[in-house]
Design a protein around this nucleic acid. Structure first.
Length: 892
RNA sequence: GCGGCCGUGCCGAAGCGGUCUAACGGGCCGGACUUAGGAUCCGGUGGCUUAGUGCCUUCGCAGGUUCGAAUCCUGCCGGCCGCACCA
């Protein structure tokens, strides 16, 4: 047998698509637009299975949308800045740009080989000055609006590499590269004020109804809104009296305020120093602070870390009870959350309980269960459930939950506290002390201080004459880059050497695709108005939080700058599942990576794409299997055999083929629409197998229509081979740009088509029988129904079931007397069936004459509906097997 | 601890109230074609069976709702993922 070289077929069509610019698009107000986007890759140089899966899903969907008549924007680009390129440059003593461009070239090549239908004319690379120009521009707009600012912040500093280290690169407090212990340094850093949009970012999550629930939850958790109360605690003077000094704690449980027996500060809380200054505990406390904040900085927040603390020797006053409570510092209190100081209620918080037991701090019960009394002395753990307030002044006897608003009101009146909303979300630190990123457009003038670079001087380009043979940020060694003129006084100035975090590049790239060559703004607002929002975004779950949050933030900022009208960038989000091998994630270190290139060489891109879409639904994890790929390949060849020349014997199957075709047009469309790509493939397999079996008994004209449909329907999955077969059929290219065929609901159901005009009367026949039968098992009445009608029958019986509530048995009979059971032997079965079942579903293959004969042998005749049977029989006289009608009623 | 997800036949994986012994693919078994293998095609793949498409039993376990449950509800068991000293 002649084998088909699918790889060769693929490159043939890839070339044709490219030559004809088949997938390039422009704005067209007459057509509905569809914007489908995949998360652009970091150009590592090698496409892995995760990419292939991501793009195969997107491409199949996009091709479908295109066939459905949408003007589809489907772009691709490269998230090209970042550490790996710079590290590679250091390692090879080359330049990150050269390395990056090489990687992009390789990756692009592999994407082309997979046949993804991107509009390559819109390709972007974030490392190009034409792109990062607009990072700088956006930064300047944000600076103007106070959304970008600079402040002191702690950085991880590796004294050996002389560079800043990302926290992901700090392993156990040591530099991942040289194993030197990381130091903390205070440095001025640039921040973006994402917190200005906290409320909107949180609120709008509700609008994202087509996002996976878990992503929405993760975003909500990340923003971390919590409503609580700020309460002022006065400090007891060194001489033991309540002084004027106060501090504020944050709590979500003001109902437990009366049970406070100590308060705890974060070690780095500025108040701590003041408190212990000059006391006998000063040295001990300072030492503790150093241990927790410096030595244990990286291990401190690990779950296993022991909860440690110590008394400061000072006291605060519970503002509600006037009790003196000790002030502690402890490693588990975080300066970044709330106010950096908490109140502790050991009786009603498990962590406080453990801490109190460890340091022998007294307990006080303020909430009890309804029917029990709690004794602080004998408690074995904190009572964290709700209950009744006791020893809580004016609130005794109240339910603690219900009391919270009342207590807040009370605190407000007494001027000792107020309600507040606290968020976990912090401002976004974007400074990187690295070369391979967007330079921050700021200069520092000796006279005028910090000055933004005027917009017309943008882009500030990365200097090219930079060596990567030393550690540290090369920008600091580039004189050409460093020396600048002050835009204000024209005097000497020094350029900012920090670059922007790469997450910034990916926060608006989807807007750039709308007008990738536009040079007056980040993007053309008119183009964005046409294309945005992204209708479908596809990518890995690993970006569920940061990337998506930043992109949402940028969209809102750009909206407020008047550049776009959308509030949210991504309408629908799909997170594709992982690709595993034998259940394990593929990784270089495990050495179990399956290279898509190898599969591609062996079986061609269609096979890889189809297998990956077939083996699991898009969101489920996918286990790679070589035998699976092999059998997918064989199936594709089988599909190809449909197009071999052959002679048909007769057209007996025409009707069936047409019916099947209409059905498949409907189901495959629905399945792709729903991202059930695996099911769409199953439907196609079923269709192909069916056509293969029917080909000898289908007239050429009908069969060709069926084949044409198969090419269009299958083209989203295996586009190259469908193009090839389309050509074999003698059709003009491209199948990829055809129209998705229309289906006719009536043609799906052969019986319905055959006896269309009789439908109503048949329906009434069934009803008549059901009426006669009164839904209970009738004696002497048998209803014969064609299988296609079973659904309608079930529907009817269901309707009846609502009224009578006892039709379970009859439905069961309908189901059980299914055609499959009786097959050809139905005639023999007639006497039995009449005996047992009020309703019998007939096979298509039943010979009606025989059936009639069998019935008459029994001394029964067909009632009215016999006509129906005959009518449909006559429509297909040639058929060896008679087409059944709707129903036949046998009456005694 | 909080939040989300999932347990289906030998395996992967559909189904998400009645067309369910449960799609599709793999594997395995058998048959046809072949000198043989491969490929291709056909059939089988829960149990019992007087062999009649007859009976019974299965979708993690146990209950419940329903005329009817793999599908809905509750509880339990088992697995996965995200967040988390968050006050």
């Amino acid at each position: 047998m002649e084998t088909v070289d699918l790889k060769k077929v693929a490159s043939k069509w890839q070339k044709k698509w490219a030559d004809k610019k088949a997938f390039e698009v422009k704005e067209d107000p007459k057509k509905p637009k569809y914007y489908c986007l995949e998360m652009f890759p970091y150009p590592s140089g090698k496409l892995h299975m995760g990419h292939v899966r991501n793009y195969s899903i997107g491409d199949a969907f996009v091709r479908y949308k295109r066939l459905k008549g949408f003007n589809v924007l489907y772009p691709m680009g490269y998230d090209a800045f970042g550490l790996p390129a710079e590290n590679a440059a250091i390692k090879n003593n080359s330049h990150p740009e050269a390395w990056t461009d090489k990687c992009i070239g390789m990756m692009h090549e592999q994407q082309l080989e997979m046949g993804f239908s991107y509009d390559w004319s819109r390709q972007v690379g974030t490392h190009k000055p034409e792109y990062y120009h607009w990072n700088q521009w956006i930064f300047l707009q944000m600076l103007k609006k106070g959304l970008a600012y600079k402040r002191q912040s702690t950085i991880n500093w590796c004294p050996s590499c002389m560079t800043v280290t990302a926290s992901e690169e700090v392993i156990d407090g040591k530099c991942w590269r040289c194993k030197t212990t990381i130091e903390l340094k205070e440095k001025e850093q640039w921040f973006l004020k994402i917190t200005a949009y906290t409320e909107e970012l949180l609120k709008d999550i509700d609008k994202l109804e087509h996002w996976p629930e878990r992503v929405r939850t993760m975003q909500r958790n990340w923003i971390g809104r919590s409503e609580g109360t700020l309460v002022d605690f006065p400090i007891v003077d060194k001489d033991g009296k309540q002084g004027k000094e106060k501090f504020t704690i944050f709590t979500t449980r003001p109902d437990t305020l009366w049970g406070v027996t100590f308060v705890v500060f974060a070690p780095e809380h500025p108040k701590v120093m003041e408190l212990v200054k000059g006391t006998k505990d000063e040295r001990k406390v300072l030492e503790f602070i150093k241990t927790t904040t410096v030595d244990e900085k990286f291990t401190r927040s690990e779950e296993a870390t022991e909860k440690k603390g110590m008394s400061t020797g000072r006291y605060a006053v519970n503002p509600l009870t006037g009790d003196k409570v000790p002030i502690y510092i402890a490693n588990f209190v975080l300066m970044e959350y709330g106010t950096g100081a908490i109140m502790a209620v050991p009786t009603h918080d498990q962590r406080d309980y453990e801490f109190a037991k460890k340091y022998d701090i007294p307990l006080k019960v303020v909430i009890t269960p309804k029917d029990k009394k709690l004794d602080a002395a004998t408690m074995k753990e904190a009572y964290v459930d709700d209950g009744v307030l006791v020893e809580s002044g004016p609130f005794n006897g109240k339910n603690n939950r219900e009391a919270i608003p009342l207590i807040n009101e009370y605190l407000k009146k007494q001027k000792i506290g107020k309600t507040t909303v606290n968020y976990r979300l912090r401002d976004w630190l974007i400074s990187r002390q690295r070369y391979w990123g967007t330079p921050i457009p700021i200069v520092y003038c000796e006279k005028c201080g910090m000055q933004p670079v005027p917009e017309e001087q943008l882009p500030i380009k990365l200097p090219k004459d930079v060596k990567f043979d030393q550690t540290g940020n090369p920008l600091e060694r580039s004189k050409a880059f460093l020396n600048a003129k002050c835009p204000k006084c024209k005097g000497n100035a020094r350029r900012e050497t920090d670059t922007m975090a790469t997450f910034l590049d990916s926060s608006w790239y989807f807007l750039r695709y709308c007008s990738p060559k536009y040079d007056k703004a980040p993007f053309d607002p008119k183009a964005a108005a046409y294309w945005m929002p992204v209708d479908q975004y596809i990518g890995g779950i690993e970006h569920a939080i940061l990337h998506l949050l930043y992109a949402r933030f940028f969209t809102k900022v750009l909206r407020d700058l008047g550049l776009t009208k959308v509030d949210e960038p991504f309408t629908r989000l799909l997170c594709q599942g992982m690709v595993t091998l034998n259940g394990e994630t593929m990784s270089k270190s495990k050495g179990n990576v399956v290279d898509p290139g190898v599969i591609n060489d062996k079986y061609g891109p269609d096979t890889a794409r189809m297998f990956i879409l077939f083996a699991a639904s898009p969101e489920a994890p996918l286990d790679w299997s070589d035998t699976g790929a092999e059998s997918t390949f064989r199936f594709i060849l089988k599909f190809g055999r449909l197009f071999d020349k052959h002679e048909s014997v007769d057209g007996v199957k025409d009707k069936l083929v047409v019916s099947k075709m209409h059905r498949i047009i409907k189901t495959v469309g629905e399945e792709i629409e729903d991202f059930q790509l695996n099911n769409a493939i199953i439907s196609m397999m079923d269709y192909v197998n069916f056509l293969q079996k029917s080909k000898d008994h289908t007239s050429p004209k009908v069969f060709k229509e069926a084949l044409k449909a198969s090419c269009v329907l299958f083209s989203p999955i295996i586009p190259h081979f469908c193009e090839e077969n389309w050509e074999i059929l003698g059709e003009k290219p491209f199948v990829s740009l055809q129209e998705w065929p229309k289906y006719d609901e009536k043609k799906i159901d052969i019986a319905a088509e055959a006896a269309d005009e009789l439908a109503d009367s048949t329906r009434s026949d069934i009803l008549k029988v059901l009426e006669l039968a009164k839904i209970s098992v009738p004696k002497g009445i048998t209803l014969f129904v064609a299988p296609q009608w079973k659904y309608d029958l079930v529907k009817l019986v269901k309707e009846k079931a609502k009224e009578t509530r006892d039709s379970g048995a009859i439905i069961k009979e309908v189901m059980k007397t299914d055609l499959k059971r009786y097959g050809q032997d139905i005639v023999k079965m007639v006497p039995k069936l009449v005996e047992k079942s009020p309703i019998v579903v007939l096979d298509e293959k039943i010979e009606l004459k025989a059936l009639e004969a069998a019935a008459s042998d029994l001394g029964k005749e067909f009632d009215c509906a016999v006509k129906v049977v005959k009518a449909s029989e006559s429509t297909d006289a040639k058929a060896k097997v008679a087409m059944p009608g709707k129903c036949a009623i046998l009456v005694n």
